[in-house]
Amino acid sequence: REGPAKCPAKLQDGPSLRIVPAGIESMKRWRELAARCPLLFEVLAVLDSAVTPGAQGAKSFLLRDGRSAVPCVFYETDRELPRLIRGRVHRCVGTYDPDRKLFRCVSVRPATVSEQKTFQELVRTADAAMSRCSQLTGAV
């Protein structure tokens, strides 16, 4: 398959799902660069809004790390969103929708202290692996 698939060609079964620890900006960047690769992102960021209910069990909120922010949505399909506290760091896993510029979270919970301490190191490791992968197809 030609095009911007960002996985090594030798992985015969096509690009498989990756879960990438990322900052808000790098999440947007990887989503764009690895357009055909199924990606979930793990983001640690501060809740910077109230959590507001919407249609079909949607709960919306805003996450912020440094200067970047992203609107998020969580659908309460099989369980309720736990109580989130504005100003605290939360760990969210989900997909990024570049058209709506929306982070669709499937797992949201407060981040532990040791997760906060180690997260940047994990982001660096994932960044390096994703860059290497992009270089293999010459797309970066």
Binding site: S16, L17, R18, I19, P21, T125, M130, C133
Partner: peptide, 11 residues
């Protein structure tokens, strides 16, 4: 179970 990291998934 499927296991996934930042480089791919083991199905």
């Amino acid at each position: 179970i499927d296991l996934t990291d930042h480089t791919g998934t083991l199905h």
